[in-house]
Amino acid sequence: MTARHVLQQADITRALTRISHEILESNRGSAGLVILGIPTRGVTIATRLGAILNSIEPGTVSVGALDVTMYRDDLSRNPTRAPSPTNIPDGGIDGKTVVLVDDVLYSGRTIRSALDALNDLGRPRAVRLAVLVDRGHRELPIRADFVGKNLPTSTSERIMVRLSEIDGVDEVTIE
């Protein structure tokens, strides 16, 4: 099967910059923002978003990681998954505006797990969702607030997000 390039490095950077501005616009500034990435690539994107946000409005945005493995609804259907570290910034999430970040939004089940996980960690003022790619085929009533690119796909296709920190190259392909 041939891979079709959908986003190149410059497209990803532009998308993340736009998302950062949209986050600041909807939050009316950077006050009380906590960016939480969902491992693995969501964390990388969250780190990049945090850097962009702090360069636009210096200082106050904190970035962390939220592992959802233990909250998944498909644990007994797949081989045992190894969890990743959860890392909540020092201020916690109580009363903050949490922006969940993931690479691809598909069924919505990962985000449901993330909402359950957040529930056990505190009570944010609001929870938003930012994704690099929304490929459709939702199985739950969940939608993203900030989307890098909407990609209509068929379920037989695979979306591959590669990021230079992990994969050595920035690209999104359909395979």
């Binding site: 592992d67 233990m70 909250y71 644990l75 190894a82 969890p83 990743s84 570290p85 959860t86 359950d116 056990d120 960690l121 505190g122």
Partner: peptide, 23 residues
């Protein structure tokens, strides 16, 4: 090593307000 690594994550649960996972 996989079990020890999972235990690292489990140890974090002990420091949370809700010390429970639905797993």
């Amino acid at each position: 090593i996989a079990i020890l690594d999972i235990a690292e994550d489990m140890a974090d649960v002990a420091h949370r307000e809700v010390k429970k996972l639905p797993t």
